[in-house]
């Protein structure tokens, strides 16, 4: 079926069934203790962010090196509402983060999507660095270098008591995002994005308004990154510009996507899990994480440019 079409009607039931054991494992993660739960929660949130980045990279063919901007927008929206207005309800914070991320993505997108290739990449770096610098310096609003602490969060009036409880909220958000993105990317809209990626010229002469579709992809991408950022702020209880807005964070999202495979829908999630666990293991063993990370990126780029899932899918297809 794969060779025929990417649209919804060809989703293979069998491959979907393969995911059931994985879902069960994710549900049982809290049995592994608080640390594993915490790590998996992070991996899920970074997974959403990397997935959202891949709407641009894998599907639209635009490399953003400033995606932390939208992750940070979600995080700071939640953080600032807690700090200044003492709102601690997730059901208010996350939707508000969605709204601010969409607005920001729309404004930034209008500027960025007129450019492609390295110019697009440079613009995303410049704009995210601008906000990073502002977050650093506008101390009264953003808390400056120290960032913002969030001491407690509520769901419909009930205080979230443990990491485990929050983990399940993340899991719900994760599956919702996954579901929505899968539908979006397998829709005519998603197909149109891929067409623009492969041949802007042909897409234009198929009657498609390129800029509008790139902008829409940019906004979709920003929206889901915003959700991830917002939940990240509440999950960790602490944010700072270096953690959520820096170019290093943007680079990590790119690395996760590359690692898992930008040609595959679930590649970025695989990437975020491998990345998060590997980083935890290597850092805790007091080894040189950056060295491993760097060598990993270099090797992937040279030897398996389509990433882990890209390679697996290729092998599955060829036999």
């Amino acid at each position: 079926m794969k060779a025929e079409t990417n649209l919804v009607n060809s989703v293979n039931l069998k491959t979907n069934l393969l995911y059931i054991p994985l879902v069960i494992v994710l549900l049982l993660i809290p049995l592994g203790g608080e640390y594993i739960t915490y790590l998996t929660g992070l991996a899920l949130l970074f997974g959403i962010a990397a997935l959202s980045l891949n709407v641009l990279l894998g599907y639209t063919g635009l490399l953003s090196f400033g995606h932390a901007l939208f992750f940070g927008c979600g995080a700071y929206t939640a953080g600032m509402l807690v700090k200044h207005l003492s709102i601690t309800s997730i059901e208010i914070l996350v939707p508000t983060s969605i709204i601010t991320s969409v607005i920001l993505a729309l404004l930034v997108g209008i500027v960025c999507v007129r450019h492609t290739r390295i110019y697009f990449t440079m613009l995303t770096i410049a704009i995210s660095q601008l906000f990073y610098a502002l977050a650093h310096k506008l101390r009264p609003i953003t808390g400056g270098d120290d960032g913002i602490r969030i001491y407690s969060t509520h769901v419909f009036g009930h205080e979230v008591a443990s990491i485990t409880e929050f983990y399940y909220y993340i899991l719900v958000a994760f599956f919702l995002c996954l579901f929505c993105l899968r539908i979006i990317l397998r829709s005519p809209f998603g197909l149109t994005l891929q067409a623009i990626r492969d041949s802007e010229l042909r897409a234009r002469f198929a009657g498609i308004s390129i800029i509008k579709y790139r902008l829409a992809a940019f906004v979709v991408s920003g929206l889901f990154a915003g959700i991830a950022g917002s939940m990240y702020a509440l999950f960790l209880g602490q944010i700072s510009p270096d953690d959520v807005l820096s170019v290093m964070r943007s680079g990590e999202f790119v690395a996760m996507t590359l690692l898992g495979g930008y040609t595959s829908f679930i590649g970025p999630i695989v990437g975020s899990f491998v990345f998060t666990y590997l980083k935890a293991v290597i850092s805790s063993a007091a080894l040189y994480w950056y060295l491993v990370f760097g060598i990993l990126i270099v090797s992937i780029v040279i030897f398996v440019p389509t990433g882990l899932m890209g390679e697996i899918e290729k092998r599955r297809r060829t036999g």
Partner: peptide, 17 residues
């Protein structure tokens, strides 16, 4: 000017959509 990574069917669907 064609879409290298799509199938022939999807290529036409892009136009038809």
């Amino acid at each position: 000017a064609i879409y290298e990574n799509l199938t022939t069917l999807d290529s036409l669907l892009v136009s038809i959509f």
